[in-house]
């Protein structure tokens, strides 16, 4: 039997499961997760005030944390090991897509944690609308971080150290611009106490960015 079960989507999920299994075993993904949890503990340990404004800080933290996570996952495999996976997956596309899936799953997990933490431990009211605002705001920052992380990883930048440095510069330069979508404008919207309508577009834009970077990476990787 010289066949293959399932299409590119099934292959991408299989790649994602493989990368996730290896990432979970390595200690490299622990640090960014610990950083987010530590910020949440400090932020919501005292009296943070009414939601959604305090989420501005956790959103701003999730941006570099998501970039760090994506970068780590993109560098899980040595370039030669990556060749083996690409040959098995039948191309670079499903491997790049699998990397994106793992990174976005990490973003989603940290976003849900960051949103639920103050809802559970602080006495302030959290309507479904406020919760949705918080979730979309965190997803906007997470997906943007993923896009930045993937753009600073292989095949664009081969060395992990240089990747981290460039990633840090990009994140710091873009996070502090309150007018700049998706992250800056999202943080500004949270500070203004805006509803979910103000963060839907940034979240969609962030997701689009992450998908575009993934596509560009797979085109770039085939040239090597």
């Amino acid at each position: 039997m010289l066949g293959r079960v399932g299409g590119a989507g099934v292959t991408a999920v299989a790649v994602a499961r493989y990368l996730l299994a290896d990432a979970v075993r390595s200690q490299r993904v622990v640090l960014p997760v610990v950083l987010q949890v530590a910020v949440l503990a400090v932020l919501f340990g005292g009296d943070p005030g009414r939601l959604p404004a305090p989420w501005g800080a956790s959103v701003l933290t999730l941006y570099p944390v998501a970039a760090w996570l994506a970068l780590t996952i993109a560098h899980t495999e040595d370039p030669v090991q990556r060749d083996v996976t690409v040959a098995a997956a039948g191309g670079v596309g499903p491997v790049a897509a699998g990397t994106l899936l793992v990174a976005l799953a990490g973003d989603l997990g940290l976003a849900v944690l960051s949103v639920l933490w103050p809802v559970v431990v602080t006495p302030y009211p959290a309507s479904p609308s406020i919760i949705l605002t918080g979730l979309l705001a965190h997803l906007a920052a997470g997906a943007t971080g993923t896009a930045v992380g993937l753009l600073c990883a292989r095949p664009w930048i081969r060395r992990v150290g240089r990747s981290l440095l460039v990633g840090a510069v990009v994140v710091i330069a873009t996070a502090v611009q309150p007018w700049l979508p998706p992250v800056g404008s999202t943080v500004q919207a949270l500070a203004d106490g805006a509803g979910p309508g103000a963060v839907v577009l940034p979240a969609a834009l962030a997701l689009l960015l992450a998908v575009l970077v993934t596509w560009a990476s797979s085109v770039r990787a085939r040239r090597d």
Partner: peptide, 9 residues
Amino acid sequence: RHLARIRGT
């Protein structure tokens, strides 16, 4: 196991 799943075999 993972590589076989990625290949769909």
